[in-house]
Design a protein around this nucleic acid. Sequence first.
DNA 1: GAGTTACA
DNA 2: TTGA
Length: 213
Amino acid sequence: MQPDLFGADRRQIRLSEGAVLLGGFALSHAEPLVAAIAALTAAAPFRHMETPGGRRMSVAMSNCGPLGWVSDRGGYRYAARDPLSGEPWPAMPVLFRTLAQDAAAQAGFADFAPDACLINRYEPGTQLTLHQDRDEQDRRAPIVSVSLGLPAVFLWGGESRAGRAARHALFHGDVVVWGGPSRMNFHGIAPLKDGLHPATGALRYNLTFRTAG
DNA sequence: GAGTTACA
DNA sequence: TTGA
């Protein structure tokens, strides 16, 4: 279901215990979010990281906040500085933090204090195959994921890699929160379909908020 | 042998 | 679903 003509889509879909899709939760802040992404990535540009195996990730990434997720031949980890510049990642905008906290609270996770915001840029054809987020120290904290721009198909699996993943459409302004018993569930994004979005053109952005340290 | 496995 |  897409946002209707008369107001924000407020569908709430329970994905599993501790995981919920909040339809349109970020819609009223979408414009400043997209503008902030442009400003942040002028300072810390999008780049294609390498997996530990040396393969180039199709999704371009950057970060803001005290810690940023990085991948290279040395493995996955969180780093306080951008490896490209040696400088700290740009500060996390107040809007980002408050939005993530509000979404987490809406999903039942009070006092979410993200110290990392991964910024993903998807072009048509790019994807993130099914994986777990397991590089964070504090796994009691949930994960908050904000979708902007082109729609995508969210893959939602279980605690094990095997088995069938559910598929849920994610639209501009949607937010997914997962934590508690769902914190380690496998998840991913199916290859992005071609298209144009008024706010982002032929791109999808995703903001992923985590407590990493 | 495990782990790789945010890939192909 | 499963590799090197």
